[in-house]
Design a protein around this nucleic acid. Sequence first.
DNA 1: AAATAAATATCGTGA
DNA 2: TCACGATGTTTATTT
Lengths: 273, 273
Amino acid sequence: MTLWIEVGPPHSRLVAEPARTLESREPAAALEFFRAELGKRLVQVAARCSIEYHGRAQSTLPSGARLLLFKPDGTLLVHTSTKLKPVNWQPPGCSFSADVEHEAIVLVARRDKPVKETVRIALEEIQFAVSLDLDGEEGFDLAGSEDDMQAFLARQPQLIEPGFKFWARERASGRGPMDLYGEDALGRRVVIECKRRAAGVAEADQLRRYVERERGARQSTRVRGILVAPAISSKARKYLADLELEYIEVDWEKLRKPASELLKSGQRRLADW
Amino acid sequence: MTLWIEVGPPHSRLVAEPARTLESREPAAALEFFRAELGKRLVQVAARCSIEYHGRAQSTLPSGARLLLFKPDGTLLVHTSTKLKPVNWQPPGCSFSADVEHEAIVLVARRDKPVKETVRIALEEIQFAVSLDLDGEEGFDLAGSEDDMQAFLARQPQLIEPGFKFWARERASGRGPMDLYGEDALGRRVVIECKRRAAGVAEADQLRRYVERERGARQSTRVRGILVAPAISSKARKYLADLELEYIEVDWEKLRKPASELLKSGQRRLADW
DNA sequence: AAATAAATATCGTGA
DNA sequence: TCACGATGTTTATTT
C-alpha cells in the first residue's frame, strides 16, 4: 500500500460541488431540472425506474435501480450493476424530453433517423440527479489497430516471404478494398488480408472473396491469397487449404511494441505510411 | 407540455441521499473512499484525469473532464461528452485498485484473462464521487431478434414459398449451424440463412458456406440456399445470383408486430418454438 | 477453453 | 446517403 504524500492545496484535487445537483424533493423541481439540463450537459440519474424500448427491436425492463446517462450529443445509456454494455441505450442524435404521465415523471429519448426509435423511462424514485460538463475525445490516441499492423507489414515485406514486394495498401479496386496487394518473387499477384486477432472461417471467406474478385478482374487464376493473422482456427486453416489459399502467422501482440518504436522514431504516424 | 399533477408524498419519488458520497476535500479521504467502495458497489467519479490503456492495443487520453464508472462485477467505463461507446473501458472481471503515484491518486483496472490488460487513470481533480447499489438485468425482455424472426418464419413457411416444409431450426445439427433447414415442394433440401437487417456480401458468403457444407455432407449439388432478409445490397444480390443462391425479401420490421401478437397469445416465447 | 455467430451492435471511411 | 469493414468489439451458445 502506497503512503499518501500531501502536496499542494487539497482544493485542487477535490471540488465538492458539481455543476448542478438536484437537491429539492419536489417532483416539479425534478421536472424543471431535467427540462433545463437534458441535451445541454451530461445528466446522470440514479433512479428506480422501468423502461420500454421500441425501435429496431423492442424491450421491457421491469422496475429496478438503474443508472441513466444522457449526453449532450443525444446519447442515452442505461446501466445496471453488471456488464459492459448498457441494458438500454440510444446512439447520438436523440432528442430528450421530460414529462409527467400517470403521476410519474417520464423521460423519453427519441430519434427518427435512421429508424424511428423510442426509449421511455418511467421514474419511480430518484436517488440522485446531477448535471455537469465533460470534455470530448480530443487528443485520444490508439495504437495497435489493424491499420497499424498493415503499415508495419508494408514496411516489413520479408515477414510475408523473401522477395515479396508491396504494390498497394487498402487498394480500392472497383469490387472492394483489399488490405494489401503485391507481387511475389515469381511475379505472381498476391492479395493479403491481415487480421490483428485470431482468424476464423469468416475471415478466410473474406480473403476468398477478394482473391476471386481479383482473379475475375485479371482473367487469371494465378493470383495468390494470404491470410496474415496471429492465429487461425483449425476449421479455417482446413478451409483455406481446400481453397489453395495460404496462411502466415504474424504475432502482432509481440510486434506491436517494435512497431510502436518505429512510430515514435518516425515523423509520421505508422498508419500513415 | 404536460402539466404536473402532484400525487402522494414527494419523498417516494425523490431521495436526496445516495448510498455514499465523497464529501471531504482531503485526498486521503478520497483514497480511502475508493478503496472501500471499488468492486463492492457501483462507483461513479466525475474527474479531470488522464488515462493510459495497455492490452489488446494501447491508448492514451490526455487530461480532461471524464465520467468514470466502476461496476461491482469488475467492469470499467470511461465516458466523454459524446458517443455511445466509452473512450476507455474494461469488460467484467477486472480488479480495481487505488493508489498514490507521483503525488496523485491513480485508479487502476486490471485483468489477466483472456489477455493481460490495464487501464490506468491518473486523477487530477475530483469533481464528484459517489457509490451506490444498482439492480441487475433480471426481468429484462427483448423481442424482435433474429431468433424471433426464425421462429416466426418456421411458423409461416409459406412466406418462403408454397409447399415449403421446415425440418429443423438452427444449431445442434452435426453438420454445423444453419438458421433454418427444410425441403421444397420438389423434395430438394433447402438451407435458409435469415437476417433481421439488410444483408451484404458477408451474409451471402455465410449462406454460401452453409450450402457448401451441406452439399458436401449430402454428396449432392441439389441443395438450395436462400437468404431471407428485409433488404440486400446490389453487390450481394449479384453475388448470390452468380452462386445460384436465392434471396427472399421479408420485411421483418413490419412483421415484428404480428409476431409479437403471436407471442402474447401463445403460452411459450416465440423463440422457443 | 475454443469457436462460431448475433447485436437495438457502433463507428469511421469512401464512393 | 449507402455500403462495407474494423472494433481493445461484447455477449451468448455450443462443442
